[in-house]
Protein backbone atom coordinates (compact mmCIF):
# COMPACT_ATOMS: atom_id res chain seq x y z
CA UNK A 1 0.00 0.00 0.00
CA UNK A 2 1.31 3.45 -0.92
CA UNK A 3 0.98 6.17 1.68
CA UNK A 4 0.97 9.83 0.80
CA UNK A 5 0.82 12.10 3.80
CA UNK A 6 -1.50 15.08 3.48
CA UNK A 7 -0.09 17.00 6.46
CA UNK A 8 3.58 17.56 7.06
CA UNK A 9 5.43 20.61 8.28
CA UNK A 10 9.01 21.43 7.37
CA UNK A 11 11.25 23.97 9.03
CA UNK A 12 12.35 25.05 12.47
CA UNK A 13 9.35 25.62 14.74
CA UNK A 14 9.34 27.52 18.01
CA UNK A 15 8.48 24.78 20.51
CA UNK A 16 9.83 21.24 20.35
CA UNK A 17 9.56 18.32 22.70
CA UNK A 18 12.39 16.02 23.71
CA UNK A 19 13.53 13.76 20.87
CA UNK A 20 10.89 15.20 18.52
CA UNK A 21 11.99 15.32 14.88
CA UNK A 22 13.03 18.73 13.62
CA UNK A 23 15.14 18.49 10.50
CA UNK A 24 14.06 17.43 7.06
CA UNK A 25 16.42 14.45 7.32
CA UNK A 26 14.72 13.34 10.53
CA UNK A 27 11.30 13.66 8.90
CA UNK A 28 12.46 11.67 5.90
CA UNK A 29 13.81 8.96 8.19
CA UNK A 30 10.37 8.67 9.76
CA UNK A 31 8.67 8.66 6.39
CA UNK A 32 10.97 5.81 5.35
CA UNK A 33 10.36 3.93 8.58
CA UNK A 34 6.61 4.24 8.07
CA UNK A 35 6.72 3.64 4.31
CA UNK A 36 5.33 7.03 3.43
CA UNK A 37 6.21 7.73 -0.15
CA UNK A 38 5.51 11.46 -0.31
CA UNK A 39 4.10 14.21 1.86
CA UNK A 40 2.19 17.42 1.29
CA UNK A 41 4.34 19.94 3.13
CA UNK A 42 4.04 23.53 4.27
CA UNK A 43 6.63 25.55 6.14
CA UNK A 44 6.74 26.24 9.88
CA UNK A 45 7.70 29.87 9.30
CA UNK A 46 4.54 30.33 7.23
CA UNK A 47 2.48 29.26 10.21
CA UNK A 48 4.41 30.72 13.12
CA UNK A 49 6.28 33.66 11.70
CA UNK A 50 5.90 35.33 8.33
CA UNK A 51 3.48 33.75 5.85
CA UNK A 52 5.01 35.07 2.66
CA UNK A 53 8.60 34.41 3.77
CA UNK A 54 7.65 30.93 4.98
CA UNK A 55 6.16 30.07 1.61
CA UNK A 56 9.42 31.12 -0.03
CA UNK A 57 11.42 29.04 2.47
CA UNK A 58 9.31 26.05 1.49
CA UNK A 59 10.42 26.44 -2.11
CA UNK A 60 14.06 26.44 -1.04
CA UNK A 61 13.69 23.49 1.33
CA UNK A 62 11.94 21.34 -1.25
CA UNK A 63 13.97 22.36 -4.31
CA UNK A 64 14.58 19.26 -6.43
CA UNK A 65 13.02 16.99 -3.82
CA UNK A 66 10.24 14.79 -5.18
CA UNK A 67 9.30 13.45 -1.72
CA UNK A 68 7.42 16.65 -0.89
CA UNK A 69 4.33 18.10 -2.54
CA UNK A 70 4.39 21.83 -2.01
CA UNK A 71 1.65 23.53 -0.07
CA UNK A 72 1.42 27.25 0.60
CA UNK A 73 -0.17 28.93 3.54
CA UNK A 74 -2.60 31.69 2.57
CA UNK A 75 -3.93 34.82 4.18
CA UNK A 76 -6.91 36.83 2.97
CA UNK A 77 -5.82 39.55 0.59
CA UNK A 78 -6.84 42.56 2.60
CA UNK A 79 -4.82 45.71 2.25
CA UNK A 80 -1.52 44.69 0.78
CA UNK A 81 -0.38 42.31 3.52
CA UNK A 82 -0.58 39.25 1.31
CA UNK A 83 -0.44 38.69 -2.42
CA UNK A 84 -3.60 39.15 -4.45
CA UNK A 85 -5.54 36.11 -5.54
CA UNK A 86 -4.19 36.52 -9.06
CA UNK A 87 -0.61 36.72 -7.79
CA UNK A 88 -1.18 33.72 -5.56
CA UNK A 89 -2.45 31.55 -8.41
CA UNK A 90 0.41 32.66 -10.66
CA UNK A 91 2.95 31.89 -7.96
CA UNK A 92 1.44 28.48 -7.29
CA UNK A 93 1.57 27.58 -10.97
CA UNK A 94 5.16 28.74 -11.42
CA UNK A 95 6.36 26.87 -8.34
CA UNK A 96 4.31 23.65 -8.59
CA UNK A 97 2.32 24.39 -5.45
CA UNK A 98 -0.82 22.30 -5.54
CA UNK A 99 -2.74 23.03 -2.37
CA UNK A 100 -3.43 25.67 0.28
CA UNK A 101 -3.37 25.51 4.07
CA UNK A 102 -5.11 28.07 6.25
CA UNK A 103 -4.82 29.01 9.92
CA UNK A 104 -7.79 31.33 10.55
CA UNK A 105 -7.49 31.19 14.35
CA UNK A 106 -3.70 31.43 14.54
CA UNK A 107 -3.60 34.16 11.94
CA UNK A 108 -6.71 35.91 13.16
CA UNK A 109 -9.16 36.39 10.31
CA UNK A 110 -12.73 35.64 9.41
CA UNK A 111 -13.78 32.81 7.13
CA UNK A 112 -16.99 34.56 6.10
CA UNK A 113 -17.57 35.53 2.46
CA UNK A 114 -17.12 39.25 3.15
CA UNK A 115 -13.46 38.44 3.97
CA UNK A 116 -12.69 35.36 1.90
CA UNK A 117 -15.32 35.23 -0.83
CA UNK A 118 -13.06 36.14 -3.74
CA UNK A 119 -10.28 33.86 -2.49
CA UNK A 120 -12.60 30.88 -2.08
CA UNK A 121 -14.18 31.51 -5.47
CA UNK A 122 -10.71 31.09 -6.96
CA UNK A 123 -10.09 27.91 -4.98
CA UNK A 124 -13.35 26.51 -6.35
CA UNK A 125 -12.68 27.61 -9.92
CA UNK A 126 -9.19 26.08 -9.96
CA UNK A 127 -10.18 23.05 -7.87
CA UNK A 128 -7.51 23.75 -5.30
CA UNK A 129 -8.09 21.83 -2.05
CA UNK A 130 -7.94 23.79 1.19
CA UNK A 131 -6.49 22.21 4.32
CA UNK A 132 -7.05 23.18 7.95
CA UNK A 133 -6.81 21.62 11.37
CA UNK A 134 -10.05 21.41 13.34
CA UNK A 135 -8.68 23.51 16.18
CA UNK A 136 -8.31 26.44 13.76
CA UNK A 137 -12.11 26.65 13.65
CA UNK A 138 -14.09 28.26 16.42
CA UNK A 139 -16.69 25.50 16.61
CA UNK A 140 -18.54 22.83 14.67
CA UNK A 141 -20.97 25.55 13.63
CA UNK A 142 -18.12 27.59 12.19
CA UNK A 143 -17.04 24.52 10.23
CA UNK A 144 -20.56 23.98 8.93
CA UNK A 145 -20.85 27.63 7.94
CA UNK A 146 -17.57 27.49 6.02
CA UNK A 147 -18.52 24.29 4.20
CA UNK A 148 -21.90 25.65 3.19
CA UNK A 149 -20.60 29.12 2.34
CA UNK A 150 -18.15 27.54 -0.12
CA UNK A 151 -19.79 24.31 -1.32
CA UNK A 152 -17.55 23.96 -4.36
CA UNK A 153 -14.29 23.98 -2.40
CA UNK A 154 -12.88 20.69 -1.15
CA UNK A 155 -11.84 21.06 2.49
CA UNK A 156 -9.60 18.62 4.34
CA UNK A 157 -9.99 19.08 8.08
CA UNK A 158 -7.38 17.27 10.11
CA UNK A 159 -6.43 16.65 13.72
CA UNK A 160 -10.00 15.56 14.45
CA UNK A 161 -9.85 13.81 17.80
CA UNK A 162 -11.82 10.94 19.29
CA UNK A 163 -14.24 13.39 20.91
CA UNK A 164 -15.95 14.90 17.90
CA UNK A 165 -18.28 12.37 16.27
CA UNK A 166 -21.51 13.76 17.68
CA UNK A 167 -20.59 17.13 16.26
CA UNK A 168 -19.05 16.13 12.96
CA UNK A 169 -21.15 13.23 11.70
CA UNK A 170 -24.18 15.41 10.95
CA UNK A 171 -21.91 17.78 9.05
CA UNK A 172 -20.41 14.92 7.06
CA UNK A 173 -23.94 13.87 6.22
CA UNK A 174 -24.84 17.29 4.82
CA UNK A 175 -21.56 18.52 3.32
CA UNK A 176 -19.96 16.41 0.60
CA UNK A 177 -17.02 18.84 0.38
CA UNK A 178 -15.93 17.90 3.93
CA UNK A 179 -13.05 15.41 4.17
CA UNK A 180 -11.36 14.24 7.33
CA UNK A 181 -7.62 13.83 7.82
CA UNK A 182 -7.10 10.51 9.58
CA UNK A 183 -3.97 11.28 11.60
CA UNK A 184 -5.46 11.77 15.01
CA UNK A 185 -8.80 10.09 14.39
CA UNK A 186 -8.32 7.36 16.98
CA UNK A 187 -11.94 6.48 17.73
CA UNK A 188 -12.36 2.79 18.56
CA UNK A 189 -13.21 1.27 15.19
CA UNK A 190 -13.61 4.81 13.88
CA UNK A 191 -12.13 4.36 10.42
CA UNK A 192 -14.42 1.42 9.78
CA UNK A 193 -17.44 3.31 11.08
CA UNK A 194 -16.63 6.31 8.92
CA UNK A 195 -16.35 4.08 5.85
CA UNK A 196 -19.68 2.45 6.59
CA UNK A 197 -21.56 5.70 7.08
CA UNK A 198 -19.90 8.05 4.64
CA UNK A 199 -17.54 6.04 2.42
CA UNK A 200 -13.75 5.83 2.23
CA UNK A 201 -13.75 8.78 -0.16
CA UNK A 202 -14.25 11.14 2.79
CA UNK A 203 -11.00 10.22 4.53
CA UNK A 204 -7.49 11.33 3.67
CA UNK A 205 -4.39 9.89 5.28
CA UNK A 206 -2.22 12.33 7.18
CA UNK A 207 0.31 12.25 9.99
CA UNK A 208 0.85 15.75 11.30
CA UNK A 209 4.58 15.11 11.14
CA UNK A 210 6.77 16.04 12.87
CA UNK A 211 4.54 16.74 15.89
CA UNK A 212 2.13 13.90 15.11
CA UNK A 213 3.03 10.23 14.93
CA UNK A 214 3.50 8.64 11.53
CA UNK A 215 3.69 5.20 13.14
CA UNK A 216 0.30 5.71 14.74
CA UNK A 217 -1.19 7.11 11.55
CA UNK A 218 -0.16 4.22 9.30
CA UNK A 219 -1.24 1.68 11.91
CA UNK A 220 -4.71 3.21 12.06
CA UNK A 221 -5.16 2.48 8.36
CA UNK A 222 -3.24 -0.80 8.06
CA UNK A 223 -5.08 -2.41 10.97
CA UNK A 224 -8.50 -0.93 10.15
CA UNK A 225 -11.23 -3.48 9.53
CA UNK A 226 -11.95 -2.29 5.98
CA UNK A 227 -11.23 -3.59 2.49
CA UNK A 228 -7.92 -3.18 0.68
CA UNK A 229 -9.66 -0.94 -1.83
CA UNK A 230 -10.85 1.35 0.93
CA UNK A 231 -7.39 1.41 2.51
CA UNK A 232 -5.83 2.37 -0.82
CA UNK A 233 -8.28 5.22 -1.29
CA UNK A 234 -7.54 6.58 2.16
CA UNK A 235 -3.78 6.02 2.05
CA UNK A 236 -3.21 7.82 -1.24
CA UNK A 237 -6.02 7.49 -3.79
CA UNK A 238 -8.31 10.24 -2.57
CA UNK A 239 -5.53 12.79 -2.22
CA UNK A 240 -3.93 11.94 -5.54
CA UNK A 241 -7.27 12.30 -7.30
CA UNK A 242 -7.94 15.63 -5.63
CA UNK A 243 -4.52 17.02 -6.51
CA UNK A 244 -4.73 15.72 -10.08
CA UNK A 245 -7.88 17.79 -10.59
CA UNK A 246 -6.16 21.08 -9.71
CA UNK A 247 -6.21 23.44 -12.69
CA UNK A 248 -3.60 26.15 -12.68
Amino acid sequence: MRFIDARCQLGRRCVIRENEPVTKAEILELMDRCRIERAVAYHAIAKEGDVKAGNMELLKDTEGDSRFLRQWVALPHTFGEFMSVEELLKGMKENSVSSIRMFPKTHGYSLKPYALGKFMDAMAEHKIPVFMTYNELASEDALYAMLTDYPKVNFIISDVSYREERKLFPILEHCPNFHIGTGNYVVHGGVKTMCEYFGAERMIFDTGLPTGSAAAAVSLICFAEISEEEKTLIASGNLERMLSEVEL
Binding site: Y162, V186, V187, H188, G189, G190, S213, A215, A216, A217, V218, S219, L220, C222, F223, A224
Partner: peptide, 9 residues
Protein backbone atom coordinates in the same frame (compact mmCIF):
# COMPACT_ATOMS: atom_id res chain seq x y z
CA UNK B 1 -10.12 5.21 21.82
CA UNK B 2 -8.76 2.43 19.61
CA UNK B 3 -5.79 0.26 20.56
CA UNK B 4 -4.23 -0.03 17.12
CA UNK B 5 -2.38 3.27 16.90
CA UNK B 6 -0.58 2.69 20.20
CA UNK B 7 0.43 -0.78 19.06
CA UNK B 8 1.97 0.76 15.97
CA UNK B 9 3.85 3.40 17.94
Amino acid sequence: FDCIHTMGK
